[in-house]
Deep mutational scan, measured.
Amino acid sequence: MDPFLVLLHSVSSSLSSSELTELKFLCLGRVGKRKLERVQSGLDLFSMLLEQNDLEPGHTELLRELLASLRRHDLLRRVDDFEAGA
């Protein structure tokens, strides 16, 4: 399986429902409101961002910004580990 997708799945499974709600709010300018209403998990949101090329294995800035906004430094370390091994 693609290591970047494994990372996104790992991050998604670590998010609380309130954190997902916050991420959806933060992505309002990037993803349409109707699409965001269908998001049920972090993976749903990340999939939309992947489709729009806002997220890519070599383009993790948005993911970092979102996780920093949540103050999830543990998840930021996972992104660091991914990039160190990528």
Score class of each variant (00 low, 15 high):
1 M>I: 10
2 D>P: 04
3 P>E: 15
3 P>K: 14
5 L>T: 14
6 V>K: 15
7 L>Q: 01
8 L>R: 02
9 H>W: 07
9 H>E: 15
9 H>A: 14
10 S>D: 14
11 V>R: 01
11 V>Q: 02
12 S>W: 01
13 S>K: 07
13 S>F: 04
13 S>V: 11
15 L>N: 00
16 S>Q: 06
16 S>R: 05
16 S>T: 13
17 S>Q: 15
18 S>T: 11
18 S>G: 11
18 S>C: 08
19 E>M: 00
20 L>K: 01
21 T>A: 13
22 E>Q: 15
23 L>F: 01
24 K>V: 04
24 K>G: 03
26 L>Q: 12
27 C>R: 02
29 G>I: 05
29 G>K: 14
30 R>S: 06
30 R>M: 09
31 V>L: 14
32 G>A: 12
32 G>V: 08
34 R>W: 09
35 K>Q: 14
37 E>T: 10
38 R>M: 12
38 R>I: 08
39 V>A: 12
42 G>L: 09
42 G>E: 00
43 L>Y: 15
45 L>A: 02
46 F>W: 04
46 F>P: 03
47 S>E: 13
48 M>L: 14
48 M>K: 05
49 L>N: 01
49 L>Y: 01
51 E>V: 07
51 E>A: 11
52 Q>P: 04
52 Q>C: 09
53 N>P: 05
53 N>Q: 12
54 D>F: 14
54 D>A: 13
56 E>G: 15
58 G>H: 10
59 H>N: 15
59 H>R: 15
59 H>G: 11
61 E>F: 10
62 L>F: 12
64 R>Q: 06
65 E>R: 10
67 L>R: 01
68 A>G: 15
68 A>L: 13
69 S>I: 07
69 S>P: 10
71 R>N: 14
72 R>T: 00
73 H>M: 08
73 H>R: 09
76 L>C: 08
76 L>K: 05
77 R>D: 10
78 R>W: 07
78 R>T: 10
78 R>H: 10
78 R>N: 07
81 D>F: 05
81 D>S: 08
81 D>W: 06
81 D>T: 09
83 E>L: 07
83 E>S: 08
83 E>V: 10
83 E>M: 08
84 A>F: 11
84 A>I: 11
85 G>M: 11
85 G>D: 14
86 A>Y: 11
86 A>N: 13
86 A>P: 11
86 A>S: 12
86 A>G: 15
